[in-house]
């Protein structure tokens, strides 16, 4: 699964580069607009080690941010599954918070938390948590009647059991959205770094943008892509291991 992901990413990346190069040579554009293969190669050699560390830094924040967002989505989604006033209130609050664009909230976050690690983490978690929350809310508020019926009519149903049943029955959905949200966590962290941070690949991309250095941006994209493919692949693999352990199936 993992090598296939990386191979597919390389194919897409290569295709993108080929399109850019065909643009470059088709329109006879300078290296300033689109860097040539030589510039790309030289830039890659020059910035690869530094950018690799930056991506690693970003990934660490994204990872913690994703864990945070999963915890947050579960913390909101589980009480929010009920049709009580409190459940509806939680849902409305969650939707409202998400309705604000992160760039509008970011300055408030920076004023409160500064422009360091915490701000990056919070923004990453905020961008990443909503799709997880939607899935958790969807999964948790949908009864699995055929399984739950026995526990309900015999008075054995407790909220923990209800959550367990619904999570188990929708395990594939949950693991898929968690693996998918890795992209959002990474994107969220990069956005945070881009808006305000002194570290990470988003910060390096911002500097490259200031200098109109597309070659550096392309190298950064390559590293982000590789990193994300590996991360997502590992998440999917972990998801299938969890599923296997829980369901006992291969």
């Amino acid at each position: 699964m993992l090598p296939r992901r990386i191979y597919q990413f390389f194919l897409i990346y290569l295709l993108g580069i080929l399109v850019l190069l065909s643009l470059k040579y088709g329109l006879q554009l300078s290296d300033y607009v689109i860097p040539g293969p030589k510039t790309l190669w030289q830039t890659a050699l020059e910035v690869f080690p530094r950018y690799a560390l930056d991506v690693w830094n970003t990934l660490q924040v994204a990872l913690i941010g994703q864990v945070m967002s999963i915890v947050l989505a579960l913390a909101i989604g589980i009480p929010g599954r009920s049709t009580t006033w409190f459940g509806n209130f939680i849902k409305a609050a969650a939707y409202n918070v998400q309705a604000y664009p992160i760039v509008a909230i970011a300055p408030i976050i920076f004023i409160l938390l500064g422009d360091g690690f915490l701000s990056r983490l919070l923004i990453a978690a905020m961008i990443c948590y909503f799709p997880i929350l939607l899935t958790v809310l969807g999964v948790m508020s949908e009864p699995v009647a055929d399984v739950e019926h026995f526990y309900r009519c015999t008075g054995r149903m407790r909220w923990q059991l209800e959550v367990k049943i619904r999570a188990f029955e929708n395990l594939h959905k949950l693991t898929t959205v968690i693996a998918g949200s890795a992209t959002l966590a990474m994107a969220g962290t990069i956005v945070a770094e881009f808006i305000a941070a002194n570290a990470g690949i988003g910060y390096s991309i911002r500097i490259a943008l200031y200098q109109s250095d597309l070659a550096r941006i392309l190298v950064a994209l390559l590293l982000i892509g590789i990193c994300l493919s590996v991360y997502q692949g590992l998440l999917e693999h972990t998801g299938s291991l969890v599923k296997k352990a829980w369901t006992g199936s291969a």
Binding site: D146, H149, C153, T154, F168, T247
Partner: peptide, 15 residues
Amino acid sequence: EPILYTYNLERLPDW
């Protein structure tokens, strides 16, 4: 005593 109702499409969790 309770009245229980059971039907043929019910499932036990697979965990």
